[in-house]
Amino acid sequence: MAQLALPTSIEFAMPPVLHNGQDRMRTVGIEVEFVGPTAEQTILALQEKLGGQITEDDPHSFVLQDSTLGDMSVELDSRILHPGKGDKSHGRVLPRIAAWFGFAARHLVPCELVSAPVPLDRLHELDRVLTVLRELGAKGTQDGPFYAFGLHFNPEIPRQDAETVTAFMKSFVLLNPWLRREVAPDATRDLLGFADPFPPDYVRKVASPDYWPDVATFIDDYLAANPTRNRDLDLLPLLHHLDAARVRAALPHEKINGRPTFHYRLPDARVSDPGWSIAPEWNRWVAVERLAADRERLDAVGAAYLAFEGEDKSWANVVEQVVQS
């Protein structure tokens, strides 16, 4: 019997708009959560494979600069373990306690690896980072019943204008039932707090073919319905970049770093699985970009959604046909 030849990797799809408003290749960064190796062990392994210079911010926070994949950071994902990054009055009192607690808690508190933005046509190279983590014995979502580790994408917005922001938001809320079904978070992940979907009334507002607001109105509507970072597509960093004063007036104490990117949060980082790649998750994001770039189809899908009387799971079957066509 002839052996079936299987592909050795998954192709990374490219979105329809590759360049930003300055005609430069758009960029995307990733964030990956895991447990097992310390932040220091991880950054040293990355340096060995990718080169660069290491800077230590504290015993649980490191930066690798000028690697072959650009800058990246690794740190325990808890603000209390990095007192120097928060309230400076605490920073003079707590560093030793924070360092000790970090070593004690590192098997429960995940490390977070954050890459600098890389050009879209180099995104596939970030799969090399997963190989480094696996070789270190890093563990992911599937390795414990209460592990809740995520993968996040930070794709640069193609144009910093109201029409682009609105089109992406429309596309995402219309495809989100399908996206969430494909990601298939299990009951444990829901219990541990995977990001909430957008409120139904807000989805219906955004989905309307007549909804094409200016930036100020879009931000006000978003903040009224979503005064939180707890969304699969967190727009607060982007909206803060577009109008920091408006966002801060509504959320004066929220931790937000403004940047011209979307923040797409996924609930599953299977870093110990030798077959796991970020490609499938990225390719589903590209489906959002493709629909966002097609104004006629986008309006038609929005009108169909408003007329649809079924549940989200049934709508997911409908929009799956849109994605595949």
Rank of each mutant, 00 (worst) to 15 (best):
E281Y: 02
Q3R: 15
D210I: 00
A148K: 11
R159V: 00
A148S: 15
R246W: 07
A304M: 02
A304L: 02
V206T: 07
W276R: 02
E125T: 13
S171V: 00
A98T: 06
P95W: 05
R248M: 04
H253W: 06
E75L: 14
G36P: 12
L235Q: 02
A138H: 10
V288C: 07
N230K: 10
A162W: 01
Q47P: 07
A5D: 08
V322E: 11
P155D: 08
K205E: 04
G275S: 10
P185F: 01
T164Q: 09
L69G: 14
K49S: 14
E31M: 07
F262S: 00
L44M: 13
D121P: 03
R180M: 12
V286P: 05
D220M: 02
K85I: 00
D201I: 06
R248V: 03
R231S: 09
R180Q: 14
N230L: 11
L94C: 02
Q65L: 10
T164F: 02
E33F: 05
D268K: 13
K139D: 10
Y264G: 02
I54L: 09
K88A: 14
A249F: 04
V28S: 14
T42I: 08
D121M: 03
D299V: 00
K170E: 09
L46I: 06
E311P: 02
A104G: 01
I43C: 07
E48C: 00
T261G: 02
G193W: 07
D220L: 04
L233V: 12
L76G: 10
Q47F: 04
P260A: 01
V247I: 06
L238K: 09
T141G: 06
G86F: 02
